[in-house]
Simulated assay, not measured.
Amino acid sequence: MNDEPPSPSSNAVKYKRIVLKLSGEVLRGGKSGDPIDAPTLQAICNQIKEIHALGVQICVIIGGGNIFRGLQGSKQGVDRTTGDYMGMLATVINGLAIMDCLEKLGVTTRVQSAIPMNQIGEPFILRRAVRHLEKGRVVIFVAGTGNPYFSTDTTAALRASEMRADIIMKATKVDGIYDKDPVLHPDAVKYDELTFLDALKQRLSVMDSTAFSLCLDNNVPILVFDLSDEHAIRKAIAGEKVGTLVHA
Rank of each mutant, 00 (worst) to 15 (best):
N2E: 14
D3N: 10
N11F: 13
K16C: 10
I18F: 09
L20W: 10
L20M: 12
L20C: 09
L22P: 06
S23Q: 01
S23N: 02
E25R: 00
E25H: 01
R28E: 09
G29L: 08
G30Y: 13
G30A: 13
K31E: 11
I36G: 03
I36D: 03
D37A: 07
A38E: 11
A38H: 06
A38K: 11
T40P: 06
T40W: 07
L41E: 02
I44R: 01
I44C: 02
I48Q: 06
I48D: 05
K49M: 02
K49A: 12
K49Q: 08
A53E: 15
A53R: 15
A53G: 11
L54M: 15
L54F: 15
Q57I: 03
V60D: 04
I61R: 02
G65H: 02
G65R: 00
N66F: 02
F68L: 09
F68D: 02
G70V: 05
S74H: 05
K75I: 09
G77D: 10
D79R: 04
D79M: 07
D79V: 07
T81D: 07
G83C: 03
D84Q: 00
Y85N: 07
G87S: 05
L89T: 06
T91Q: 05
V92A: 15
G95D: 08
G95W: 02
I98R: 02
I98V: 09
C101K: 10
L102Q: 04
E103T: 14
E103G: 05
K104F: 02
G106A: 07
T109C: 15
I115P: 05
P116K: 15
Q119L: 14
Q119K: 15
P123H: 14
P123Q: 13
F124N: 06
I125R: 11
A129V: 13
G136Q: 06
V138L: 07
V139C: 07
I140D: 11
A143G: 01
G144L: 09
T145M: 04
T145Q: 00
N147Y: 11
F150K: 00
D153S: 01
D153I: 00
T154E: 00
A157Q: 09
L158P: 01
L158V: 12
L158G: 00
A160M: 03
M163C: 12
R164I: 06
R164C: 10
D166A: 05
I167M: 09
I168E: 00
K170S: 08
K170F: 04
K173E: 06
K173G: 07
V174E: 10
V174I: 14
D175F: 12
I177L: 04
Y178M: 05
D179F: 06
K180C: 12
L184N: 11
L184T: 04
P186V: 05
V189K: 15
D192P: 08
F196G: 00
L197F: 05
D198C: 03
A199D: 02
L200E: 10
K201Q: 13
Q202K: 14
Q202F: 08
S205A: 15
V206D: 00
M207Y: 03
S209M: 08
T210P: 04
F212I: 00
F212D: 00
L214V: 09
V220E: 03
V220H: 02
I222M: 04
I222R: 01
I222V: 14
L223S: 04
L223I: 08
L223Q: 07
V224F: 01
F225E: 02
F225Q: 04
D229V: 15
A232V: 13
A232L: 07
A232C: 15
K241I: 08
G243I: 07
L245T: 08
A248L: 09
